[in-house]
Simulated assay, not measured.
Amino acid sequence: MTQGDMAEARPVLEISDLRYGIGGRSLFDGLSLLLRAGESVAVTGSSGSGKSTLLSCVLGLIKPDSGTVEVAGTSISGLRQAKLARLRAQSIGMVFQFGELLPELSPLDNVYLAALLARNGRGNGARERAQRLLEELGVPPAETSQELSGGERQRTAVARALINEPALLLADEPTGALDAESRDRTADLLFQVPRRYACGLLVVTHDPEIAARADRALHLSAGALEPVAARGGM
């Protein structure tokens, strides 16, 4: 996807003038972000700067003091819990630092379960789609997810996040618990996802080398997001 194509792609996340404070401290002070399908954005920042809180605002788990958050064209402000849960299940995929798989289930069942919980698993080939995703992402067959390596578990988590064909994929320190080799392989795969599956990717990471792989790297500081200069320009 060229820069021109990306500019024409549909917005999957629009954050406007977000403000949020806690304990007398302002985390977001007019923060804004636009993310389009096919694009990846990485957010870095010091510990306590609000990176994970930003993801919680996007998920509707934290209500900001003011500002708007739109996911796939739907404002999450004021949504009732049932509609918010449906939006999360159908439009947002989430990859956690430690995968958060059910260890007693196979990789296939972990992914298929996400489709069932979203009421997207009956009569529409969801199990076959889950198997195809795992194959595409290079996850080997296994009786339980405990048999997988750390990198394989994270690739399973990516497949689970993609099973419902979300518009937006969120990743919270997705390589933070991996060794160097698994980190690089997982990052390579993760940043291919937006163009491959026509979604937007927002990654929160403390690792500048991971952030540099994104189409845009932003630094969260003083309540706002600022572009990180490309390495060639530093």
Rank of each mutant, 00 (worst) to 15 (best):
T2V: 12
Q3W: 15
A7Y: 09
A7L: 13
A9I: 04
R10Q: 13
R10M: 13
P11L: 02
P11G: 07
L13G: 03
L13R: 00
L13P: 04
L13C: 04
E14A: 06
E14S: 05
I15D: 01
S16M: 01
L18E: 04
L18R: 06
G21W: 09
L27H: 13
S32E: 04
G38F: 00
V43C: 11
G45D: 10
S46F: 15
G50F: 15
L54M: 05
L59G: 08
L59A: 05
L59H: 08
L61K: 09
P64D: 08
D65F: 08
G67H: 11
T68Y: 14
V69F: 04
V71W: 00
V71E: 00
T74V: 10
I76M: 01
I76N: 02
Q81L: 15
K83N: 12
A85T: 13
R88I: 06
R88N: 06
A89C: 07
S91H: 07
I92V: 03
G93F: 01
G93M: 04
M94P: 09
F96Y: 01
F96G: 02
G99K: 08
G99R: 08
E100Q: 05
L102G: 13
L102H: 10
P103K: 04
L105V: 09
S106Q: 07
L108V: 15
L113I: 08
A114Q: 08
A115C: 07
L117S: 01
A118R: 06
A118K: 08
A118Q: 04
N120D: 05
R122M: 12
R122D: 11
G125W: 02
R127I: 13
R127S: 15
L134V: 12
L134H: 11
E135Q: 11
G138Q: 04
P140N: 06
P141M: 12
P141E: 14
P141D: 14
A142G: 08
T144V: 06
E147A: 11
L148V: 13
L148Y: 14
S149I: 13
G151R: 02
R153W: 14
R155M: 04
A157W: 07
A157M: 09
A159P: 10
A159E: 10
R160L: 04
R160V: 02
A161R: 01
A161Q: 05
N164A: 08
N164S: 00
N164R: 03
E165I: 06
P166G: 04
A167D: 07
L170N: 07
L170T: 02
D172N: 01
T175S: 01
T175D: 03
G176S: 03
D179F: 04
D188W: 01
L189Y: 01
L190A: 02
V193I: 00
V193N: 00
A198R: 12
G200H: 00
V204K: 01
D207I: 08
E209P: 11
I210G: 06
A211S: 10
A212G: 05
R213N: 02
A214C: 08
S221F: 14
S221W: 15
A224Y: 15
A224R: 15
L225H: 06
P227G: 09
P227Q: 07
G233N: 15
G233D: 14
G233V: 13
M234Q: 14
M234K: 14
